[in-house]
Write a protein that binds this DNA or RNA. Structure first.
Lengths: 139, 139
DNA sequence: ATAATAACAGTAACAATTATCATTATTAAT
DNA sequence: ATTAATAATGATAATTGTTACTGTTATTAT
């Protein structure tokens, strides 16, 4: 019902999200958008991030360490988090098929209906793998 | 290094966790253990829950709605959350094999190393399914 | 131009969790 | 058994991430 009005702050937040392939937190968004809008409020950032999520133009990525990140890429995909550097990286594989298999396995001994899942993968990212290999060689 | 001393409060917290197949939050643990220890502190509950997690005697279950639950069952298994009643239920299927398949699919176009995943399943639990079917018939 | 109001900045309030600290309970040594 | 050392406690203060409030500003429709 309430008509949406345009706002430069919201544009800046959305553009920042789209421009980044990593997954900034509200604080990181705030820090960057503050450069363009020196007295933007942290509340405005939170309000617009939720708003964008509601509009389906961004997605909320709650990590198991309790931190909440935001993703400008709303196409279905899974996330990976590096145990070394905590970076969150998009994974690129056939979500549809794999998820279907995974859900049918999960439904095996369950009397309810499973219609979705949220997964996070963990391990070592390519960057950190390189660093660790270099350290090994130096020994 | 620091020697662990026994505590009745910790026992009560652990026993409560083990006794429950649902997955209480810190507040719920506090509410129940308070019956036996009327002036236990909420801080003590949080402290011991983390401690039990560190000892590998409990696990932390952070849900994507931001709430944090605790599980006395530390054997590897997945969780399901009902969209209707928000209950968290253990799923019983062959984790090892399924996870292996899932991880190898996820690793497809990724140069890092994936060694684990955390997944949450969503849908309708058996209880709520029943209720919804009854409602349908009444129409 | 003007009026209506969505969105703002600034700030207060909030909920969940963690830290502090003086007191109590548990353990190990006498 | 007493005692000494200290882990753990209860009570409370502090912290963090987020949401709500309020008067002002910016956007849109008339």
């Amino acid at each position: 019902m309430a008509a949406i009005k345009h706002s430069k702050q919201r544009d800046a937040i959305k553009n920042f999200l789209i421009s980044r392939k990593d997954h900034p937190t509200a604080e990181v968004v705030y820090a960057h958008v503050s450069r363009e809008f020196p007295n933007i409020s942290l509340g405005t950032v939170y309000r617009n991030l939720s708003f964008l999520v509601d509009l389906g133009q961004a997605s909320k990525v709650p990590c198991s360490d309790g931190s909440v990140h935001f993703d400008g890429n709303v196409s279905p995909h899974y996330h990976f988090q590096c145990r070394e550097c905590n970076a969150i990286i998009d994974l690129d594989f056939d979500v549809k098929k794999t998820e279907k298999d995974f859900i049918s396995a999960a439904s095996e001994n369950f009397d309810g209906v499973i219609d979705g899942n949220v997964s996070f993968f963990y391990g070592t990212c390519p960057e950190c793998l390189k660093k660790l290999n270099l350290l090994k060689k130096q020994e």
